[in-house]
Design a protein around this nucleic acid. Sequence first.
DNA 1: ATGTCC
Length: 463
Amino acid sequence: MNSFLRRIDQWRLVLDPGAVPGMAVPGLIFADDYIESILKGEDVLSQVANVACLPGIVGYSMAMPDIHQGYGFPIGGVAAFDVSGGIISPGGVGYDISCGVRLLASKIPAEEFRPNADRVLAALFSAVPCGVGSVKDSLGVKELDRILEEGAVRVVRSGRGTEGDIRRTEEGGCLVGAEPGAVSPRAKERGKGQLGTLGSGNHFIEVQETEELFLPEKAASMGLSKGCIAVMIHCGSRGLGHQVCDDYLKVMRGAMTKYGIAVPDRQLCCAPVDSQEGRQYLGAMKAAANFAAANRQAIAEAVRDVFAGFFPGEKLTTVYDVSHNLASMENHVWEGKKRQLCVHRKGATRAFNGLPVLIPGSMGTASYVLEGTPGAERETFGSACHGAGRVLGRNEAIRRTSGRNIPKELSAKGISVMAEKAGTLGEEAPEAYKDVSAVVEVVHGAGLARKVARLRPLAVMKG
DNA sequence: ATGTCC
């Protein structure tokens, strides 16, 4: 596989067709030498090549520098398919539909927060449940359907949030065309008690200090002040989105023979965008995405309640809320032609010109705020990276960190960490991830997104 | 990621 990889400049590698039989387009991987050295030791390039074989793919099978192995499609992958002749695939979105990031900004100086860090963390654990069955009032059938249809807008209209929250959420907090009826009863059963819950794994709530501004005016317009705290929320659609993915992987497996589609890996099962199965998945995916946006809105409100107790009168304003696991129908110009495309971003963030791109770091490392560029719109259908990206599998990370006291290690760096489950700390240890700063340098250098600010963690709540 | 097997 490595012999088909060709460096074209400091930030880009091309994977030539021929890497696997049937590639309709080449691969395009955003990587410097550091990222290249990591991905050559993994089996992720064959996933980039396999995606390039799917019907109707336009341009390249793309991968961001935080690429690592996923279900069928690589995490960090971007793939756009023509509406006519192209496909939509649940594996190109991922199990955690519309997993994403909300960032809240404040004018609270980091020095004022620091003495309160441990008490704030304890209060966050009380205010935001992590797991299942921990929500006091589970949603009724009708209310859940409204959440699936209206997303974060429903939460705000119920009195939990501001119009500014909606304005600064991707697509206004509500994907139009969501179909609650395409979401299975089982998925709804899993979701009804999970609104306002964080989940586990790499999901977190983190209190951060805005430590460096690269574009001070842009940062100021987002509400970010150097030396002040911000709160980052990283979570998704919980069991509901997971069940939607599971349900539609089964649907797509059946649809493959019906539409005569052959794929090199059964995890890439898919249906034509413009088919009954394709449209149904899109409607269900949007509903799950609305659930995820509502979830982050509910959590943001719970965070505000906690901070109101410690810092009365201080506002936490939304910088932005953006997903990094979605398929989206978008118009893009490619090779001089305007085309309607189904853009799959799996572990990749939409990076439209001037809009914020939120990049959570791994536990104990920096996070970044970037802004999208015309370069991204020209080259990657308006996409950039989504985070650090794993270098170690979960089991390998747990194995290598056994016996270590990770909270103590992070405490030595001035970071308070509390986790619901001790095991999460091992699988999320910093060395399980790539260097997020190096990942960000690649998308910045390649001109996909500009660095606006770097934030460093002060207190971390892990699921 | 995930009531880590209905």
